[in-house]
């Protein structure tokens, strides 16, 4: 079935996002995180994933959204970013969604011009719009600073307007 792809949907504030399922290793209830000095605020710290030490990225902070206390909905999505394994915390994981290619639209010109390569496209499902994210562009350690810059409120306002 090439005409559709599977995504893992998740929530951040009021927006729904999704990662391609192949890039997701697992979804966890947040574990103990050791805080790390000398790193940006969107890096929560490091965690022990069965013997492997992985960084935990707070997606809310990466997108410069209001911080939020962890609750029982909060999840850590463990993703494969190249050869790295990186975790990121989201407000909640919604569901696995199958999206057909016709439902996917490329990111609008205005968004792309902002250098948001991490947005792979938009999918219109019923009444909602899901932002499809490109993990390699979003969570690679060398690209996160860029993501933070372009994801600053200015762009979010453009998106919601």
């Amino acid at each position: 079935m090439k005409s559709s792809m599977q995504f893992v949907g998740f929530r951040l504030a009021d927006q729904e996002y999704a990662f391609r399922i192949e890039q997701i290793q697992e979804i966890l209830i947040p574990d103990r995180v050791t805080q790390m000095p000398q790193v940006a605020d969107y890096i929560e710290g490091v965690s022990n994933l069965r013997g492997t030490i992985i960084p935990i990225i707070n997606l809310r902070r990466l997108f410069d959204l209001e911080p939020k206390e962890k609750d029982e909905e909060t999840r850590t999505i463990v993703a494969n970013v190249g050869s790295r394994v990186i975790g990121c915390t989201v407000d909640g994981v919604t569901q696995v969604i199958r999206i057909s290619l016709e439902q996917i639209q490329p990111a609008p010109e205005i968004v792309r011009s902002e250098g948001t390569a991490y947005i792979a496209g938009f999918a219109r499902l019923d009444s909602r719009v899901v932002v499809l994210l490109e993990i390699e562009e979003l969570l690679h350690p060398s690209k996160m600073e860029h993501v933070r810059r372009v994801a600053a409120p200015r762009v979010s306002i453009d998106l919601t307007a």
Binding site: P37, Q38, V46, I53, I54, P55, R84, I86, P141
Partner: peptide
Amino acid sequence: LAENFQPVRGLSGASI
């Protein structure tokens, strides 16, 4: 730390 992240100044690694 570079295995899954990147080197961090002031830290030489991590242990479990």
